[in-house]
Structure formats: structure tokens, C-alpha cells
Design a protein around this nucleic acid. Structure first.
Lengths: 327, 327
DNA sequence: ATAATATATGTAACCGGTTACACACGGTGT
DNA sequence: ACACCGTGTGTAACCGGTTACATATATTAT
């Protein structure tokens, strides 16, 4: 059996209320009594039961983190940031993989509510405000803002995409293509818009050279193959994320291109693995850890009832030129 | 306010006990009453409070997953497997990053106990039986077995290392080296033993050519540089894991080696990213997802009080020859 | 000297469920 | 007719904490 507050009270010769006061350092407790209680706690190796606490306080010190798939290398970094920040405040993180499926996401929200979670951090394209406005805990959207008044943290995808596109053009690319992310994903849309505007501005936009792919390696390889087979003279590709960019590099290599000599590639995200492909990937980096920690801090503030949180946090991106492009 | 069982009872004109019986499909309930209660639940959109449930039942349907660092690409796959399996059984996973620090690990164990976790799955080198035998929930060790009677799931590291070493030798390597993992990590030790025995057996073991590195990219690059600077005529390296192997490839490339022509490299783990380096990494793959799901299933069984679990689960590894070695 | 206040502690209600137990009713066996 | 059992439902204790409130004493202010 685990020791309970009653046993501690008995051992210390006081009531449970006094033990509770000592535990929470709340209310008046005589110094001697306090020491007795502390001694009893020590001796019995007592640890308060958080479930009981949560029930009364309606505060579980738990938050949910819903991501599409922790295997996608973007998310572990985010998860790590979230865990670091929330742990510091003695919160616990429940990890949920939604596979970007609406039912799973809603299921997780319900589960989290039932488990008394104090708040939820999520990355989703499918969730709409009406799905979550019935939940009475704070919510912060990460990476992909909702079209509502739900606070969010994201990167400036539009500007980042322009950065990458202009970089490719500055490097001398004449015929540039874009493999964009899924149609229903907002950041893919924003990056596409950035690409389009930058290309238009330099007079080289060609809708024919834009195709879409999921944010997965396999899909990216397939799409890259299609694109290059149809337009072998493409000399620059902006990929909507690093995974797609890596897929392009692997495929182009197989097709006999040499990068960056006759094909340049730029990605988006700044995941660690961009550095391990050969050639190393030029990319537009998001401050992933910082975004995660900011979102976590926002959520903690909201849980704390503070309303002084900035609802919209858009982080700047940074171009990191590496070997897959060359001036 | 969230609706409680009392409000449902009131609306349905019955007692809370009856509502509870309907919820749990336990005990006698008249069919008409049941329908009324269900209607009330539906109408009020009632969801039982799991915190209250947990308090009474002393069963929270939560497990902890403690890993060194979710950023290490080995662990997301494991985490995913664990989440998939436990979710199926309506369990929730609390993610904990220990950075392989004993205090953090113990801290997490205590936290999990306080939060009423039903069991813990962990990956650790530092934890000793005496640290965890005071916890009264089932525990399963993953990847790195403890020297005790705690059930575990791991890969056959020794045999896998032999596989890799023999493969390098079969490919014609004459002077093979090993960059092993950290001294205190059991799997690093086993893989080293496998390397040593295989090399000895073929008469090419040279202790000079074994150095150790942490399982991180930066460290691996540094160690690879040292090793190759000192022994430039090494023609084969077995790395204790894929991350180290990738570090070796990147460094060797920079030093002007061409792989696999004058240096071959083999890794261990079979992480996804082995396929994206150039040349693609020859590796000894562990069935990561299967190991994670097996461990999760074991834990669920133990939580369920079943004693028919196999305490020791050693998975076979498989050599996956790719471009970084060549016959 | 007396009221007001600070200190110290215990009792019991409460959080939202679950379930042991009591009780009532109808059918069956003898 | 009576015992017994299956069915159906409610009352209240319980899980392990927190805290409002009551009570008592010591200290300070007026």
C-alpha cells in the first residue's frame, strides 16, 4: 500500500488538515508541528496522491500535445521544447499522434478533457473552431494556425518561401519548380503563395512547374520523379519542406542530375537531417525549439488565467545556404 | 461547467448508482431505465470524469514512457509503437525525456507514481534495480535490459554486431575499426563484444582501432576525424549506431575518402535516415516498431495482472546492405 | 480591561465517480 | 403459503486529498 495523508497525520499526531497545510505551505502551522509532520512524511516516504488533488482542485497539471506523427522529424524537436518548458512548471505532457485524422484528434481532445488536462497544444489542419470550442481548457495551435481566435504560434511561411525562391533565382536558376505540400495544409498554401509571388516578381512563374506532394519521403520521391521526367530542364526546385527536398535530392541523383551543378534544391523547416544528406540541404529554417517553447509558455500562462498573452506569434525564418544551392 | 453524473441522474430521474451501472454495464438495469439514462447522457453530452474514476479505482489508464531524448531518431519510432498499442487499449502515454540523467529518471518515476500511472516503460542505462523496486507498478525495460528480474525487450546486439563485422570483412576490408557507443551503455558493450569476437575470429582485431563516442552526431564526427587522422589506411568501420555511422560518412567524405571504394561503413539500428545519407547506409536493423509494440503489450499484460508474460524478449536483427559497403 | 487580530488546529464537507449493502418486488419451487 | 432467488433501484461509504468554518489561545491595539 502507498502511504496516505491519514497515516502521516496519525504518525505526526495531528489532523489531515494540518498535514495538508504543511504540504501546501498554506495557512498557519506551528514551527514545531511542521517539523513533526515533515519528519513523519520523511519517515513514511509519503508522496501526495495527485489524482486526489486533481479531483478537488480541478487542475491536473497535465497538458496534451497532439501532433500528426512523432516520426516526422519536425515534431520531436517541438515535443522536446514543450516538455522542457512544461516540466519546469511541474506539468506533465501527454503525447498524442493524430495522423492528421479528424476523428483521432477529436477523440484525443475528449480523452484529455476526461482526464482533466489543463490545456492542449496541437498541430492540425483538419480541426475547425467548432470542433473545439466546447472544450473549456485553453488551447494553443502550433505550426498551423486556425482561422479563429485561438492563439497560435507559427513561422512566417510566406516570407520564408520568398527567401528560398529568391535565393534560387539569385543563384542563377532560370526554370524553377515548386513541390508544394498537401492542399489542405495552411503552411503549404502560404509557402506556395510565397513562391508564386517571388517568382512572378522576377517573371519566372510557371504554374506547370508546381505539383503537390504529402510531407512524406515516399510521396516526395514519386512526385519528384514525375516532375523531372516531364521537365528535365528544370534547374531549381523549392520544396515545401525538408523531407520533400531530401526526396528530390535522392531522386535527382538517381536520375543523373548533379546537385547543385545542374539542379539546385532548397527546402523548408531546418530539421537536423538536412545536414546529413549529400549535398547538404539549403533550407529556410524555422526556430523549431523556440516555437515549441513559446507555445508551451503561452499555454501555461493561459492555464494560469493570465490574459496578457500575445494571441498571434509569427516567427521569422532564416535562409541557411548549404551545398544544394550555389551562387 | 462540465456535466457530472449527478446532473445526468437528476435529468433521468434515477440515482447516480443507476447511471454508473449504465455507464459500466454492470449490475441490473431495466431496459427502459437504461434508455432514459442514455438519452440524458446524450442530451447533456456527459462524459465521465476519469480523475474521479481513477481515484476510486486506483487505475488511471496511463503509462509513462521514459526515453533519453525524443530527438534521437530511434525513439520516435519506439514512442509511436507504444502509443499505438496502448491507445488501442484506451491507455494514455505520458512522454518523459530523461537525457540519461539518473535524477531526472527518478523524478519521472516519482511523478508517474503520484499521478497514479499504471506502469512505466523506460530506456535507461543509469537506473538500477534498487532505484525502482520501491515502485509498485509494473515496469518494462526497453532497448537496454537491467541486470535484474525486470522484464525487458531488446535486440540481439551481440549477434547483430557480428553480422555487421563479418559483412565488412566479407566485403574485403582488411583493416577494420569500430566506433563504439558510451562505456556505460549496455548495448554499446554488447555490440563491441560482437565486433571483437567476429574480428578475432577472422584474425583482424586491433584494439587500437576501437574508440568510443556518444550516440550523437557531433561527437561521432569528432571521433571519426581523430580515428581517420591517426589511421588513414582504415578501410572499414563498424559504428555502434546509425547516427555515429552517419557522422563517419560525413567526416570521411570531407577528408576525401570515397565510400565504399576506399572506406566502407556499417551502422546499427536501421533508423529511417540511414536511407537518406549518400551513400545510403548499410546497417543492422532492429525491428524498432515491433520492439516498442511488444514492450507495450507486455506492460499492458502486467498491468492486467497477467503473469504469463515472457520476461526476456530478444529480437533478432537483420543486415541491410546498402551503398556504404560493397562486395 | 476589553475588543480586535494573529496564530494554531481540528471537523467535516467536498471533488465526481464506484460499489457494498439494503430494500422492494415478482416469479418459482415445494 | 412460504422460502428463495433474480431483477431493479436507492443510500451512503469510500477513494485521498483540500479548504471553509468553528474553536481556542496568544498577542496587540485602544
Amino acid at each position: 500500500m502507498v502511504t496516505t495523508i491519514k497515516e502521516v497525520a496519525k504518525k505526526a499526531g495531528v489532523s489531515v488538515a494540518t498535514v495538508s497545510r504543511v504540504l501546501n505551505e498554506k495557512g498557519y502551522v506551528n514551527e514545531d508541528t511542521r517539523k513533526n509532520v515533515l519528519a513523519a512524511i520523511e519517515e513514511l516516504n509519503y508522496r501526495p496522491n495527485n489524482v486526489a488533488r486533481s479531483l478537488f482542485k480541478k487542475q491536473s497539471k497535465t497538458i496534451g500535445l497532439i501532433v500528426p506523427d512523432i516520426n516526422n522529424p519536425f515534431f520531436p524537436q517541438l515535443a522536446r521544447a514543450v516538455e522542457d518548458v512544461t516540466n519546469e512548471a511541474n506539468f506533465t505532457v501527454v503525447l498524442c499522434n493524430s495522423d492528421d485524422k479528424l476523428e483521432k484528434e477529436i477523440g484525443y481532445f475528449e480523452m484529455l478533457q476526461q482526464n482533466g488536462a489543463d490545456g492542449v497544444l496541437f498541430v492540425s489542419n483538419t480541426l475547425k473552431p467548432e470542433h473545439i470550442n466546447r472544450f473549456n481548457f485553453p488551447i494553443v495551435a502550433l505550426d498551423r494556425p486556425l482561422d479563429s481566435d485561438i492563439p497560435f504560434v507559427t513561422a512566417n511561411n510566406y516570407e520564408g518561401a520568398k527567401l528560398a525562391t529568391n535565393h534560387l533565382l539569385d543563384c542563377g536558376c532560370k526554370k524553377i519548380a515548386h513541390i508544394r505540400g498537401p492542399e489542405n495544409v495552411l503552411n503549404a498554401e502560404d509557402r506556395y503563395r510565397g513562391f508564386k509571388d517571388a517568382a512572378l516578381c522576377r517573371g519566372v512563374f510557371d504554374e506547370e512547374l508546381v505539383i503537390s506532394s504529402s510531407y512524406q519521403l515516399d510521396s516526395a520521391k514519386k512526385k519528384a520523379f514525375q516532375l523531372l521526367a516531364k521537365h528535365p530542364d528544370i534547374d531549381g526546385i523549392f520544396a515545401s519542406n525538408d523531407v520533400i527536398a531530401i526526396g528530390i535530392i535522392k531522386t535527382a541523383e538517381k536520375l543523373g542530375y548533379s546537385i547543385p551543378e545542374n539542379l539546385m534544391v532548397a527546402g523548408f523547416d531546418g530539421i537536423q537531417f538536412g545536414e546529413i544528406v549529400s549535398p547538404e540541404l539549403t533550407t529556410v529554417a524555422q526556430p523549431i525549439y523556440e516555437m515549441g517553447s513559446t507555445a508551451a509558455e503561452m499555454l501555461l500562462k493561459l492555464i494560469d488565467g493570465r490574459l496578457d498573452v500575445k494571441k498571434e506569434n509569427v516567427f521569422n525564418t532564416e535562409l541557411i545556404p548549404r551545398q544544394s544551392t550555389k551562387l
